[in-house]
Nucleic acid binder design. Sequence first.
DNA 1: GCGATTAAGTCAACATGGCTGACATAACGA
DNA 2: TCGTTATGTCAGCCATGTTGACTTAATCGC
Lengths: 204, 204
Amino acid sequence: MTDLNEPVETAEKAAPAKARGKAKAADGKPRGNGRESRKRALPEAKLLEVAELLFFAYRDFTRDPDAILKDFGFGRAHHRVLHFVNRHSGLRVADLLDILTITKQSLGRVLKQLIDKGYIVQQAGSADRRERLLFPTERGRALAERLAAPQLVRLSAALKEAGPGSEAVLRRFLEAMVNAEERPKVSSIMASPVPDEAGSKGDG
Amino acid sequence: MTDLNEPVETAEKAAPAKARGKAKAADGKPRGNGRESRKRALPEAKLLEVAELLFFAYRDFTRDPDAILKDFGFGRAHHRVLHFVNRHSGLRVADLLDILTITKQSLGRVLKQLIDKGYIVQQAGSADRRERLLFPTERGRALAERLAAPQLVRLSAALKEAGPGSEAVLRRFLEAMVNAEERPKVSSIMASPVPDEAGSKGDG
DNA sequence: GCGATTAAGTCAACATGGCTGACATAACGA
DNA sequence: TCGTTATGTCAGCCATGTTGACTTAATCGC
């Protein structure tokens, strides 16, 4: 035990509850974050609770697919790639980099594995043949759906629990959580959930 | 380029939009996930969009603190530990393991660093002296608040954007996203946001 | 057509933060 | 006293993020 304090004595070194309560009242935190922004922002404590709930929710949101992935020798990174390729098939490598905000090397590693194992195929862009458009194979589609299934069940149940109309609220909330500069990008990604049916628009 | 397909020919190997639309209509997915559960669950597509938004939201939620952490030579793991120690000071190592659902070794690594650098102190439990109760130092508290600040701003703005009453909806949703077995645990953790002020209630 | 740029892939090396397995220590409790 | 529990730690592995440098192929500007 490196540097253990005695049961109560040395505790002044720490910031025990008492002192902290005081500090809270005293400094009034002039930071610039929540300071009752005219339209009565939620108290900091409430917001912190929401932050914690978000952590717990996301922690469990990823649990089911993580377990499945292990059986396939894949990790969460593979899930992310496979998901976006499946949902927005035909996207470019650059798109994926943008979505995931990871480096080319990181993506390359997992993408290569998914391709080698037959979950994803590439296809040169017809307009710009440097581009590698990504598509799921049937196998990839099947795995993507299997991974999504428990998450959809969870989401569905949680929305039901949250009450009618909660989906719209949640959606607005989540969208606003995204960095402002990123929002148009996110919107445009979300707007193409698989080139609808036959790509009869601008791609033939 | 490992195994590139020609622009259009080999694409049958993949599952291009056409086939996929068909499959979707054909198999009707008898999986057991959403199948219009009597109370009219949201269509799968909608749920998938929410799942994606959740990903984007969480991705950006962690961005600001991650950047700050880098200046301190810390990572996201440190943030998580520091946050919970700060918010629920006096918790035991075992509690932290439970919250984070990581192994003792993983926690040990980051916890040790936080202790060595003076952000957290330990104190033997007075009832059970095997326990190591964790407290933030002033320094730890300061860092925790600095990390939390941008997240609170973001949350506050997003809730405002989502409209009045959104906080309650969001809270219900997030709580329901947590694994059912974990919910009591989460509730009890959330119920002790720092032994309030002086522990004048049920804890002294 | 040529040179600059762009899209993608790759090598090498490294950091973080998960993991398992084994084991040590101290304190509790029957 | 002995078994169990709470914590810490050593050693090593794996997944996934990072930087930096470089190649190849294709496009684009001129």
